[in-house]
């Protein structure tokens, strides 16, 4: 596929991903899924999955509570995968760290466009007010359906431009980078999920329930249990707390 066609297909995927999230919440916009799709399109699935998995972990705990803007890791993983794959993917030690660095930067820059998109949709609800006043239900419906445009285009346009025009420039810059730079970038990339976990914890009442956090840590770090065992233990602990609360209620 030509570069411009690849850019178009990836941009369309970004558009569909955000619109699906706004509807039934099917996670096509998850960085890991977008990484896979991008990997399939550019012919390097492994790079897509690694960049996507890192972005997914970075996004842990970043739920758009009440409509807050968070970095756009979907757009990040699409652009980062395209760059990482064109640098040679697994065959070039610098490729995937560079892809992750580009993905993180793109995700951060996207917060500006997300705010722009969310603000622009306000126009449509004001227009809908006008149509409702006149009893024009078709006008109201149209305003709602058009609301997807600011959301979708603020993803479509940057992906299209970055993949179509930006890739060569980024590639040239990365190719010229010394090894100490890419080695440090790689280590930094592995540290990013720490922020994801911290954000997740900051949403939770850690000060009140800290013992449960330690239990989970001990299960993995000292007892070396597999993750599925930890999930089961967590469910069992939740069940025990529930049973205890219920018997306490009965006894009162």
């Amino acid at each position: 596929m030509g570069n411009i066609l690849i850019a178009f297909v990836l941009a369309l995927w970004a558009y569909i991903g955000i619109v699906l999230l706004l509807g039934p919440g099917v996670w096509f916009n998850e960085p890991l899924v977008s990484g896979l799709f991008t990997g399939l399109i550019v012919g390097d699935v492994h790079t897509g999955l690694v960049v996507g998995a890192t972005m997914t972990l970075l996004g842990l705990g970043q739920w758009t509570y009440g409509g807050a803007t968070i970095p756009d890791y979907q757009v990040g993983s699409i652009i980062g995968t395209a760059v990482g794959a064109s640098l040679g993917g697994a065959n070039n030690a610098a490729a995937i760290p560079a892809g992750i660095a580009i993905a993180t930067t793109a995700a951060l820059l996207m917060t500006q466009l997300d705010v722009l998109g969310r603000a622009t949709t306000t126009i449509f609800i004001h227009a809908a007010d006008g149509y409702a006043e006149k009893g024009n239900d078709r006008g109201v419906a149209l305003m709602h359906l058009l609301g997807q445009l600011p959301w979708g285009l603020t993803r479509f346009i940057p992906v299209f431009l970055a993949v179509w025009l930006g890739k060569d420039a980024i590639n040239a810059a990365v190719a010229a980078a010394p090894t100490w730079l890419t080695a440090s970038l790689k280590t930094t990339g592995h540290m990013l999920p720490a922020l994801g976990f911290a954000l997740l914890l900051s949403m939770l009442p850690v000060r009140k329930y800290w013992p449960y956090l330690i239990v989970g840590f001990v299960l993995f770090a000292f007892l070396k249990l597999p993750l599925i065992a930890i999930l089961l233990a967590a469910a069992a602990i939740g069940g025990l707390v529930y049973l205890q609360q219920r018997s306490a209620q009965v006894n009162v």
Binding site: F197, L201, P205, Y209, Y212, F217, A234, A235
Partner: peptide, 11 residues
């Protein structure tokens, strides 16, 4: 929340 914290502690 309790289940989530045990899981996060291990993850």
């Amino acid at each position: 929340t309790i289940v989530g914290l045990v899981v996060i502690g291990g993850f």
